[in-house]
Lab assay of single mutants.
Amino acid sequence: NKEHILAQKEVLTPIEYEHYVKHLFDIGEITKELYIELSS
């Protein structure tokens, strides 16, 4: 869920976080809207 993803932002580097969010989007775990929101 969104809270879990945002928690990852605390422990990952910005680049790792971007890759993580992109991966979730690629596998269909999150919607495009959520992907855009989380990567901003």
Rank of each mutant, 00 (worst) to 15 (best):
E18N: 10
H4V: 11
E16M: 05
Q8E: 06
L6R: 06
H4Y: 11
L34I: 05
L6A: 06
S39G: 03
V21G: 00
L24T: 01
S39D: 05
Y17R: 01
F25G: 01
E37T: 09
S39A: 11
E3D: 14
K2H: 04
V21W: 02
L24Y: 02
N1F: 15
D26N: 09
T31E: 08
K9F: 07
T31R: 03
E33D: 10
N1C: 10
F25P: 00
K2W: 12
L12M: 15
I36T: 11
H19C: 07
I5S: 02
I36A: 14
I5P: 02
I15M: 15
I5R: 01
Y20L: 11
E29Y: 15
K2C: 05
F25M: 09
I5F: 07
L34F: 07
E37M: 10
L38M: 05
G28D: 04
P14Y: 08
H23R: 13
E33W: 09
Y35N: 01
G28W: 03
E37A: 10
G28P: 00
K32M: 14
H4E: 03
K9I: 08
T13P: 08
E33L: 08
I15S: 12
K32R: 13
Y20M: 07
E16S: 05
I27M: 15
E18T: 12
E29M: 11
Y20W: 13
L34E: 08
Y35M: 09
E10D: 14
I27R: 14
S39N: 15
Y20Q: 02
K32N: 13
E16K: 05
P14F: 09
E37L: 12
Y17T: 00
L24S: 02
K22Q: 11
N1D: 15
E16D: 12
Y17I: 01
A7E: 11
L6N: 04
F25E: 01
I30S: 00
K32I: 12
L24M: 08
K9A: 07
Y20V: 02
Q8V: 12
L34P: 01
H23P: 00
I15P: 11
T13E: 09
Q8F: 10
I27G: 07
E29G: 09
L38N: 00
L38T: 02
I30F: 01
E10Q: 11
I30Q: 00
E29Q: 13
D26S: 14
D26T: 12
V21E: 00
Y35R: 02
H4D: 15
A7D: 05
K9D: 01
Y17Q: 01
E3M: 11
D26E: 13
E29V: 08
H4T: 12
H19A: 13
E3K: 08
I15T: 12
P14I: 14
E3Q: 13
V11P: 02
E10Y: 11
E37V: 11
N1I: 15
H23L: 08
H23M: 10
N1A: 05
E18M: 15
H19S: 14
E18P: 02
Q8I: 10
E29K: 10
H23W: 15
L24H: 01
L12T: 03
I36K: 11
L34T: 11
S40R: 11
I36E: 04
H4Q: 12
E18L: 15
V11T: 15
S39W: 10
I27W: 09
V11R: 09
I36D: 07
T13S: 10
I5H: 06
P14G: 08
V11C: 07
H4S: 12
P14R: 13
K2N: 06
G28F: 04
H4K: 11
K2I: 11
S40D: 11
L12I: 04
K22P: 00
Y35Q: 03
K32H: 13
A7I: 06
E33I: 06
I36Y: 15
H19T: 14
E37H: 09
S39P: 00
N1K: 10
K22I: 06
E29W: 15
V11D: 06
S40G: 12
F25C: 02
Q8G: 03
H4N: 14
I27S: 14
H23Q: 10
P14V: 06
L38E: 01
I36N: 09
L34C: 06
V11H: 10
L34V: 13
L6F: 06
L38Q: 02
T13A: 09
E16G: 06
E3T: 09
Y17K: 00
K32F: 14
I5T: 02
L12K: 05
K2E: 04
H23S: 11
I15A: 15
L6T: 07
E37Y: 13
Q8P: 01
P14D: 10
L12G: 02
T13G: 08
E10T: 08
N1W: 15
K2P: 09
F25I: 02
I15D: 13
K22A: 10
H23V: 03
N1H: 10
E10H: 08
L34A: 08
I36M: 15
E10S: 10
K9Q: 08
Y17V: 01
I15Y: 08
L6Y: 06
V21S: 01
S40E: 12
K22R: 15
V11N: 09
K2M: 12
Y17F: 13
I15L: 12
N1M: 13
T13I: 04
E3N: 11
V21L: 12
E37N: 04
F25H: 03
L24G: 01
L6M: 13
H4F: 11
K2G: 03
E18R: 15
K9S: 05
Q8S: 07
I30P: 00
E29T: 14
I36V: 14
E33A: 13
D26A: 15
A7C: 03
